[in-house]
């Protein structure tokens, strides 16, 4: 991506949820007085059991859902009054199911869809398409019909189509579902690149390993509010395992191995290996 294109990504805003509650029309209380603040450029994984309110939470960021109580603020501005189409320029959301999103006859046209809606045309549009395809490893599929692709590649395409919008906030809903190890690594690199460009990245996930490896902060949700919030090393530390398990979550394997070996909190492969090397430097 050129410096000029990257520069078009406006600075990420501060996000604040102030006592946000939301109930669906059938009476399901999805969010219950939730408070959360996300600073510009943070990478945040939102985890929790099914029905804990994760997807409902992120849909409040682009106005698809409006709180029944409380406020969602971006740089102090209440998003309740902002049109969804306008918020789309600031918040890109890749949905969990790519088939609810893909609508074009080719990969290129699919990726162009979002930026075109934002008024991007010409060379800049081409550049964005190329960058997004490169980011998800679909550069050779420009003319392929999305419905001729397998699920995992359709999922990557859906992510690419949102990446190309260059929104300061990028939200990925269950991005690793259906991905093999290479696909998960690809999504991880997308998160890292977006964060390096100063974008705020928020992912809803059930994949604890992905959350620990790729995000600087993990928010655990339970019953519509925040149960745990902190860096992976804090959230996945052994004292918090009962709370994680109460939310139907299991700590990632390196965290369990590190705790069993008495190495402290080692939520990622890298931290576990580093702790092991430190333990036995002569074999490192």
């Amino acid at each position: 991506m050129s410096a000029a294109t990257a520069a078009r990504t406006t600075a990420a805003p501060t996000i604040e949820f102030e006592g946000v509650s939301f109930a669906y029309p059938d009476g399901t209380q999805a969010l219950d007085g939730l408070d959360l603040r996300i600073e510009p450029g943070e990478t945040v994984a939102i985890v929790g059991q099914n029905g804990s309110g994760k997807s409902t939470l992120v849909k409040h960021l682009n106005g698809l859902l409006r709180p029944t109580a409380g406020r969602v603020l971006m740089d102090g501005e209440d998003v309740r009054a902002v049109h969804v189409a306008r918020l789309a320029a600031r918040v890109g959301l890749a949905f969990q199911n790519p088939d609810r999103q893909l609508c074009a006859g080719s990969v290129k046209a699919e990726i162009e869809f979002g930026p075109r809606n934002l008024g991007i045309r010409g060379a800049e549009l081409d550049e964005r398409v190329k960058a997004a395809l490169d980011a998800v490893g679909l550069a050779g599929e420009v003319d392929t019909n999305p419905y001729d692709m397998g699920y995992s590649r359709r999922k990557l395409l859906a992510i690419a189509s949102v990446l190309a919008m260059l929104t300061p906030i990028l939200i990925l809903d269950e991005p690793t579902t259906g991905q093999d190890a290479r696909g998960v690594a690809r999504v991880g690199s997308v998160v890292a690149a977006a964060a390096a460009a100063g974008r705020t990245v928020i992912a809803v996930s059930h994949d604890m390993r992905f959350a620990a490896e790729c995000f600087g902060r993990v928010v655990v949700m339970r019953d519509g509010s925040v149960a745990l919030d902190g860096a992976p090393a804090e959230v996945f530390a052994e004292p918090h395992w009962p709370e994680l398990r109460a939310a139907n979550l299991e700590p990632p394997l390196p965290a369990v191995a590190g705790a069993r070996l008495g190495l402290g909190s080692t939520p990622t492969d890298a931290t576990l290996v580093a702790a092991l090397v430190e333990l036995a430097p002569e074999r490192g």
Partner: peptide, 17 residues
């Protein structure tokens, strides 16, 4: 399905309002 698709397209800047 239409509700979910509409949400997904609005999230990509499609104006339905």
């Amino acid at each position: 399905r239409v509700g979910e698709i509409m949400d997904a397209q609005r999230a990509r800047g499609m104006d339905t309002e």
